[in-house]
C-alpha cells in the first residue's frame, strides 16, 4: 500500500469519490461555523473596529493562494519525474482554484484597505507580489489552454511552474526591496512571535481549516472532471480512427 497506487486514474477516482462528500460537508461545516463565529460572536478590534472581520476571508484565501501554487509545483515535479498523468491533471485542476483564491485575497484586501488605509490599492510589497502571483497563475492557465497535445502541455506547464516558482520567490523579495510596506506583518506564524489575539485566532483557524478542505474538495472534483474529459477525448479519437 503506497501513495503511488493512486497514480492509477481508476483508483484515484474511486478514492476521490469516496472522499468528496465527506470533505465537502466538513468544509461547509467549518466555514459556516468559523464565519458565523467570526462575524457575530467575536469582538471588534479596538483600532480597526468591525473591519477586522474580513480577516476570516482574507487570511485563509491568501494562504490557499500560495499553498495552491506550492501544490502545483509538487504535482508538476511528480509529473516530470514519475510521469503520472493524474498528477499533471491535478496541477491543471488546481490552477483556476488558486487563481480565484488570489483574487479573493486581493479583493478582500482592497475592501479592508479602503476604510483602514484610505485607499483601495497601494504599491505595497505584499499586495504587489500577490498581483504578480496572480499573473503567474494566468500565464500557467493560458499555456495549458494554448497547447493542443495534452502530454506536451503537461510537460511545458510543469517547466513553467518550476521556473515560475523560482521567479515568483525572487519577485517576492525583490519587491520588498523596491518599496516600503504598508501591510502589517504575518498574522500567523509557527513560532508565535507575531500573532493575532486569541479571540480572533480560534475562528480564524476554523475558517482556515474550512478553506483548506474547500480547496482539496474543489481540486479533487476538478481533477476527476479532467480525468473523465481525457477519457472522453480518447474515446472520441478512437471512434474517429475506426
Amino acid at each position: 500500500m503506497s501513495l503511488w497506487e493512486y497514480a492509477n486514474p481508476r483508483r484515484f477516482l474511486g478514492l476521490s469519490e469516496r472522499l468528496l462528500p465527506g470533505l465537502s460537508v466538513l468544509s461547509l461545516l467549518l466555514l459556516t461555523a468559523g464565519l458565523i463565529w467570526g462575524f457575530f460572536y467575536s469582538p471588534d478590534d479596538y483600532r480597526m473596529g468591525s473591519t477586522v472581520k474580513i480577516i476570516y476571508l482574507h487570511v485563509p484565501s491568501a494562504l490557499m493562494a500560495i499553498n495552491g501554487w506550492i501544490m502545483m509545483l509538487v504535482a508538476s515535479l511528480v509529473w516530470l519525474i514519475r510521469r503520472h498523468h493524474v498528477s499533471a491533471l491535478a496541477a491543471k485542476a488546481a490552477a483556476p482554484v488558486g487563481a480565484v483564491m488570489t483574487v479573493i485575497a486581493l479583493i478582500t484586501g482592497a475592501i479592508w484597505g479602503q476604510p483602514m488605509w484610505g485607499t483601495w490599492w497601494v504599491w505595497d510589497p505584499r499586495l504587489t507580489s500577490f498581483l504578480i502571483l496572480f499573473l503567474f497563475y494566468l500565464g500557467y492557465m493560458a499555456l495549458w489552454h494554448a497547447v493542443d497535445d495534452p502530454d506536451k502541455a503537461a510537460d511545458l506547464t510543469s517547466m513553467l511552474c518550476l521556473v515560475g516558482s523560482v521567479f515568483a520567490l525572487l519577485s517576492r523579495y525583490a519587491v520588498n526591496f523596491w518599496n516600503q510596506g504598508l501591510h502589517q506583518g504575518a498574522s500567523l506564524s509557527l513560532d508565535k512571535e507575531e500573532h493575532v489575539a486569541d479571540v480572533f485566532y480560534v475562528p480564524l483557524v476554523i475558517t482556515i481549516g474550512g478553506f483548506v478542505l474547500l480547496f482539496l474538495a474543489l481540486v479533487l472534483l476538478r481533477t476527476g472532471t479532467e480525468i473523465r474529459l481525457r477519457r472522453i477525448s480518447v474515446l472520441i479519437n478512437r471512434g474517429r480512427m475506426t
Binding site: I132, L135, F136, L138, G139, A142, L143, A146, V147, K152, L156, M159, L160, V163, G164, F167, A168, L170, S171, A174, V175, F177, W178
Partner: peptide
C-alpha cells in the same frame, strides 16, 4: 522555447515572459 509550437503565440509569450522580468526590472 515554451511557446515555439503554438500558432500566433506572441501574445501568450508576453503574458508568460513579463512576470518573469519583474526582479530584473526592479533591480
Amino acid at each position: 522555447a515554451l511557446t515555439v509550437g503554438i500558432k500566433r503565440g506572441g501574445l501568450l509569450l508576453s503574458l508568460l515572459v513579463l512576470p518573469l522580468y519583474v526582479p530584473t526590472l526592479i533591480f
